[in-house]
Write a protein that binds this DNA or RNA. Structure first.
Lengths: 216, 216
DNA sequence: CGGTCATGTGACCGGGTGGTCACAGTCGTC
DNA sequence: GACGACTGTGACCACCCGGTCACATGACCG
């Protein structure tokens, strides 16, 4: 949790520190990320960082939280916008495409998301990843539940199972498109957006197939 | 690649170093793992490590490779044993359960697998993860292909898509059962093996459903 | 025995780390 | 102008890192 000093800071200074921290942690991860570098890139003395945050972990947790809020805000229209007028699998594919587009155009957020997902140290992950995952859960579950309620997904479909699968696949999709070596034979880093969309449909389609009503 | 000195070493000394390195890298990951600790735990001078390997990355790459060989060897019966006499989805569920069992009883291998999968630095991942992933690919693809050939999976099924999905889900299953915060609502860390198996079936079942023939 | 060579060792090196703190500056208020 | 509270600063601390290297050890051979 940032200190009160941080909240009183001028917005431009806050943004400079936040961006520098997102960049550094997003590029090198938590343990390898350097406060010296963050302070230098932000144009701020290192001592100042310790007046704004309790320490490195506190800063990282703040960065992770802010990032997840930004991502969540960007995806909110898709999380809230489903009304059953479009076939759900089509809607979800569109939403996933927007998801990929967002990370393609927001490398800072992509980096921090990667660093958060890849963190190994349980202490760090507990401070950072579990809350973020809860945010995703709170966004996805109602969306899936609504699709079941409207009959766009099969009555009695295992909502928890689908949500769990999405929770595994979503971060993977977001990162695979930009980190080589994460992909299987079906690549998401395709040069053409159409290829990427088609390949994503190849992956998400089969997963959804068992959840849609038989007569569709 | 280890030096020739390493290959001439007594097996007990090699094993001591290997185990210490698996433990350290598996617990703390590559960048945070310490050669000082490895040398101490192995009962070996730090200088000796540099007579066995070119440096830290070389040691880590060796550890990752050896680990993937061990895992691969343990799973080989399942990769080779499919002959179409059992329904494929049943066979795969059994194989995945063996997969979970293996990591439950081999914490060193589990730790290194986690560290390999969670590595952020592209240079390290290229040196380590891509080869490992190729090993998985070489094991999984023939298995799936055989299931298509025997008609246990639908003719014309998208083999690449299923393999890609498995490549994403498998490491996740292996690690989720032991690293809190990685799981969605459907948990694999259940106390009872039956619960765990049932939950895994809830996740893998829908994924497979679209690949099995319609008349089954 | 002396000589050679492979191997083992740990003090040591330069460098980077997260974190601290004594000091300097900068406001608003009386 | 004088005060006090808040904020900014970077030299500094103790510590740990990966990597090196001069030397010790010991096995084998003539």
């Amino acid at each position: 949790m940032p200190t009160s000093t941080w909240t009183r800071l001028s917005p431009v200074r806050r943004e400079r520190v936040l961006v520098a921290a997102m960049d550094e942690f997003g590029t090198h991860g938590y343990s390898t990320g350097s406060l010296n570098v963050i302070a230098r890139e932000a144009g701020v003395a290192k001592g100042s960082l310790f007046q704004y945050f309790e320490g490195k972990l506190d800063l990282f947790a703040y960065v992770a939280e802010q990032t997840s809020l930004r991502v969540h805000a960007a995806m909110r229209p898709w999380l809230d916008g489903y009304d059953g007028s479009t076939e759900f699998s089509r809607y979800l594919t569109d939403a996933l495409e927007a998801w990929l587009d967002y990370f393609a155009s927001h490398p800072l957020e992509r980096g921090v998301t990667a660093a958060t997902n890849m963190e190994l140290d349980p202490a760090v992950r507990n401070a950072v990843r579990a809350p973020v995952q809860d945010t995703y859960l709170a966004g996805l579950r109602p969306l899936v539940q609504r699709a079941v309620d409207t009959g766009d997904l099969r009555k009695g479909a295992d909502v928890d199972a689908l949500v769990s699968l999405l929770l595994i696949l979503l971060p993977h999709f977001a990162l695979a498109a930009h980190t080589p070596g994460l992909e299987g034979p079906v690549r998401l880093a395709g040069d053409h957006p159409e290829v990427r969309r088609a390949n994503m449909a190849r992956l998400i389609g089969p997963v959804l197939a068992d959840f849609v009503p038989k007569d569709r």
